[in-house]
């Protein structure tokens, strides 16, 4: 394989617990997260809420500086590059699409004044050219004719249209990597596929790589080349999409799979049951983070933190029992 566009090596992100007193407690939002992403690849990051998947995206987007570990983009450690504080060079290459299409757009601005910023910040167009550029990206995301949308305020558009505007803003700087944080989960079901297909289209046509975050396994299978499963801040399994779904190794991946709705089967008892809840990340479980809920866990799992091991070429699993 060619050189990866993005590589995370043992990245950890610990947030201090806010509150009274001088407790040195931290939330272990990410621990030992390592993966890489090839150019033009879509990697789906799947997990439940609180699994650390959004934190992973934010760390890559330089919204949080990780506690430890390395993030290498295009061969350079993004936190050690000599650059100005805003790091425009990196920002032009890596953009993020957020979950809430309403929340990601400033309600006090028109679409025009929202979409002109990327061009002006990165000096991609002169003041005179901006309007033409905005119209161009609006057409690219299917908001046609652009004249009908350019002077609207966000509250005048539907959720699906707003998410298109968000995508338009992200692609307007011609990024290499897009971090998509559950971009369809707040949209109506009938337009989710349209947005997902659009994301795929930009990969196919522009070669944009994606880190696609979702909690929907079926959606991940549809869109992604590879799937990475996170649980309680750690990567549990990563491999080719079809393999992770059909031949999952990790008990947690199996659990997720059996919990997903399967209309084709009709209601039936799923073979796997999970006890308990997602553990607190202030005091994460010793050993394997999943052992508190795992049907296969034994004494060893409580003690040892399993390594992310390669089971097959390109398929890694973090479990002692595999």
């Amino acid at each position: 394989m060619s050189d990866p566009i993005l590589e995370l090596k043992d990245v950890a992100m610990h947030f201090p617990v806010s509150g009274f007193g001088r407790s040195k407690q931290v939330v272990h939002a990410m621990d030992q997260v390592s993966f890489s992403l090839q150019r033009g690849e879509i990697l789906a990051l799947v997990g439940e809420s609180g699994s650390g998947k959004t934190t992973t995206a934010k760390v890559i987007a330089k919204l949080h500086q990780p506690t430890s570990g390395e993030i290498i983009f295009n061969g350079e450690n993004i936190y050690q590059r000599k650059t100005n504080k805003r790091d425009l060079g990196y920002r032009k290459n890596v953009q993020m699409i957020f979950q809430d299409p309403f929340g990601a757009l400033n309600p006090t601005h028109t679409i025009r004044s929202i979409l002109e910023r990327p061009f002006l910040i990165h000096k991609l167009a002169s003041r005179e050219q901006v309007e033409a550029k905005i119209k161009e990206v609006l057409v690219q995301v299917g908001l046609e004719p652009p004249e009908q949308f350019i002077d609207k305020f966000p509250h005048e558009l539907s959720g699906g249209q707003l998410q298109r505007v968000n995508i338009a803003r992200a692609i307007s700087v011609d990024p290499i990597l897009l971090l998509a944080d559950e971009p369809t989960s707040m949209l109506d079901v009938s337009i989710r596929m349209i947005i997902m297909n659009m994301i795929k289209k930009f990969r196919d046509e522009e070669g944009i790589s994606y880190l696609y975050i979702t909690h929907n396994l079926a959606g991940a299978r549809y869109i992604a080349d590879r799937i990475a499963v996170m649980y309680a801040g750690m990567m549990m399994e990563i491999g080719p999409a079809e393999e992770v779904i059909q031949k999952a190794y990790h008990p947690y991946t199996k659990l997720l799979r059996s919990a997903a709705p399967q209309p084709e089967k009709g209601f039936q008892e799923s073979e796997l049951t999970a006890k308990g809840d997602i553990p607190s990340l202030v005091n994460p479980p010793t050993g394997c983070r999943f052992h508190t809920r795992c049907p296969q866990a034994d004494a060893e799992c409580k003690e040892l933190i399993p390594e992310l091991r390669e089971i097959k070429p390109g398929h890694q699993v973090r479990c002692l029992k595999v």
Partner: peptide, 26 residues
Amino acid sequence: EREFVKVAEVLGENPFIIVFREILPN
């Protein structure tokens, strides 16, 4: 903490523009 401010940061927006353009009108 709203997402549109995070978006502006990811875009590399000047902090003073964020304050006056994104936050102040709200």
